Computed example of a mutant assay.
Amino acid sequence: MPYSWTTADPTAPTRELHLWPHQSLPPTGFAGFILATFAMILIPLLALLGSVLLWGLLPFLMLAVGGIWFALARSRRNARILEILTLTRERAHLVRHNPNGATQEWTCNRYWATAQMHRKEGPVPHYVTLRGGGREVEIGAFLSEEERIALYQELQRDLRPLPR
Score class of each variant (00 low, 15 high):
A113C: 15
T114W: 01
T6E: 13
V128A: 06
A113E: 04
P2V: 02
N109F: 06
H22W: 15
A39H: 04
F38S: 13
E136Y: 00
A36H: 06
S144D: 15
T103R: 12
H118T: 01
P161Y: 09
L82A: 13
N100W: 02
V137I: 09
W106M: 08
T37Q: 08
H126M: 10
Y111I: 10
E147A: 14
A113K: 11
V128T: 06
R164T: 11
W112D: 13
T7W: 00
R160V: 10
R135Q: 13
R119V: 13
T14N: 07
P59I: 05
T37D: 07
S75M: 06
V52K: 07
G133N: 11
L130K: 02
L72W: 06
D158F: 01
R77A: 15
Q104A: 12
T28K: 05
N98K: 12
L159P: 12
W69N: 05
A12R: 07
L53N: 00
I149R: 14
P10K: 06
H126A: 15
I149C: 04
W55S: 05
L54P: 03
E121R: 13
T129S: 15
E105C: 00
L61F: 13
L159Q: 05
P161M: 07
Y111T: 13
H97I: 09
E136M: 08
C108H: 02
I68M: 14
A64D: 14
Q23W: 12
P27H: 04
L85E: 10
V95W: 03
P99T: 01
L87R: 11
G133E: 05
G56Y: 10
G66T: 11
L151T: 04
